[in-house]
């Protein structure tokens, strides 16, 4: 991200989960959207294995440019073996994901930040439990 600009997201570490709250809908305007993506990608690069919940509570709509940035973020998260959920997703925003078939790519929750973090915690627990049941590899 370029030096003196105000951050577009607030990152909070809550237990094993990082909550990234988008500060306002204007963060996702056409003039900001590339910086939004870079800010997230830089954070993911610095935190391999990140369990990231992006909080949309301050967002009332998003454009296809934002979807493009979110797809980049999702790809990066997968590369670093992290996890991504989106929380506080309004009906309007969910509809946009649905129209573009991206509700099949992203894990979306309508719940607010606390429930969003809890759902991610649960998802991590399930993943850890499943990993424990994997057959040990023969040496």
């Amino acid at each position: 991200m370029s030096g003196s600009k105000e951050p577009l997201l607030d990152f909070e570490v809550i237990g094993r989960v990082t909550l990234a709250t988008i500060r306002a809908s204007s963060v996702l305007s056409a003039s900001n959207v590339a910086d939004f993506g870079v800010e997230l990608l830089d954070y993911i690069d610095a935190h391999p294995g990140l369990a990231l919940v992006i909080n949309f509570e301050n967002v009332d709509y998003l454009s296809s440019s934002v979807l493009t940035e979110l797809l980049r973020v999702n790809k990066k998260i997968n590369e670093v073996k992290g996890r991504l959920h989106l929380c506080a997703v309004s009906k309007t925003i969910r509809e946009i994901f649905s129209i573009t078939n991206l509700d099949r790519v992203f894990i979306l929750h309508e719940d607010g930040r606390e429930a969003g973090v809890r759902r991610m915690e649960r998802s991590l627990d399930i993943a850890a439990s499943e990993a424990a049941w994997e057959e040990p590899k023969s040496s």
């Binding site: 454009s63 296809s64 979807l67 493009t68 797809l71 980049r72 946009i96 129209i99 573009t100 078939n101 991206l102 099949r104 790519v105």
Partner: peptide, 18 residues
Amino acid sequence: KDPDPEQLGGRGICLIRH
């Protein structure tokens, strides 16, 4: 055409048509 889920761009017209 409507984009594939993994395709990065090309969703603007899809949304307008909806």
